[in-house]
Write a protein that binds this DNA or RNA. Structure first.
Lengths: 197, 197
DNA sequence: ACCTGAACACCGTTCAAGT
DNA sequence: ACCTGAACACCGTTCAAGT
């Protein structure tokens, strides 16, 4: 995980990992069944870093907290969302996580079917947002208004008028990642709340 | 794309593609700059297969149509969502797509900032759902109630009580993929509608 | 203008041989 | 019980040589 954090998930090869550990790549096979096993283990460990929801402060608050926690984990481990999405979530900590989320929703009064759909909708959004964000958001040290300015000037005259209007907006108002995430999350939680009434 | 559809995206290697085309792998470099260029081209082509929204029938309907169209494309090209998410969306057809979606939202009365957030929320959900679905949904030819039955019997006595309750539900009621997708999409569209009033 | 053959620097993985 | 060296079957990519 340290190696992935520092040099990117694509540079996590058995050979590079061996080098990092001062050992030959072949030696790793005494400790993991193969690279798939290694990646599954990473998924399991990174999922365990996401705070489990407790229903104490209301279900909406619990869902919001876990979404925010997941985002914090993705900030530390930029490879996490893609890796989790591309592999199953069948380890013990993934199951524990699902059980706790569903428990909060069931206790809140959602039927089993609706709780399952709500969980799926929320996680689709949380993981999906991270995947989009990693493609469009400027790097931490970049000025989002400058990026928008650039995009704007790269658009040919008359082409993509709506895109140009949005870019014009963001050339003035900085893009707020957390606010954008919260906007979508709020949409889902609001509708779920209305459903419960 | 045919090769990816038939044997999976991970089997799309320059060598396999060359074999498919009756040519050496090295020959491909006369037509694409490299594998990245090839994958970017695939993203561009597959995005072009998603129906562009027209605002004629109302913005909610337009958004729903494009989401359903994206899902239909993912059904034909199971590798598409992951590939699009893992690479940028900066080709002409991606830009055209974004422009059209944003145009519908702007004309519906959303401010530029809100339109951008709404677009991001919707696409996060649509792409995110596909990624989750590909992990949890049973294959087309599998009986979802049988799968739920299996999951249920694999859960140790007393562990994961909420998960067990959900599995019990799905052991009786078949899992409906389209309904689950529509549930989450409806949550977002409903809240966006309320925002507009 | 396009293709081929051969090469290079990489992968994951296996396995006999060492300690 | 764990590690190493060497090997195998793969990758993407380059480039001189062909037509």
């Amino acid at each position: 995980m340290d190696l992935a954090d520092e040099t990117g998930i694509e540079s996590v090869t058995m050979r590079a990992l061996g080098r990092r550990l001062g050992v030959e790549a072949a030696s790793l096979y005494n400790h993991v069944a193969g690279k798939d096993d290694l990646l599954d283990g990473m998924v399991e460990l990174v999922v365990a870093e996401i705070d489990l929801p407790s229903g104490d402060a209301g279900w909406q608050d619990a869902m919001r907290r876990r979404a925010v926690s997941a985002r914090a984990v993705f900030a530390v481990h930029p490879w996490a969302a893609a890796l989790i999405d591309s592999r199953g979530r069948s380890g013990p900590s993934s199951l524990e996580y699902a059980d706790r989320v569903l428990g909060v929703l069931l206790r809140a009064g959602f039927s089993p079917g609706t709780a399952a759909n709500a969980f799926l909708a929320l996680d689709s959004y949380v993981y999906g947002f991270e995947r989009q964000r990693s493609n469009i958001a400027p790097a931490d040290d970049e000025d989002s208004t400058a990026v928008a300015q650039e995009v704007l000037s790269a658009i040919p005259e008359g082409a993509y008028p709506s895109l140009a209007r949005i870019a014009t907006e963001y050339a003035v108002t900085p893009y707020d990642d957390a606010a954008a995430f919260d906007f979508g999350l709020g949409l889902i939680l609001d509708s779920l709340g209305a459903l419960l009434d």
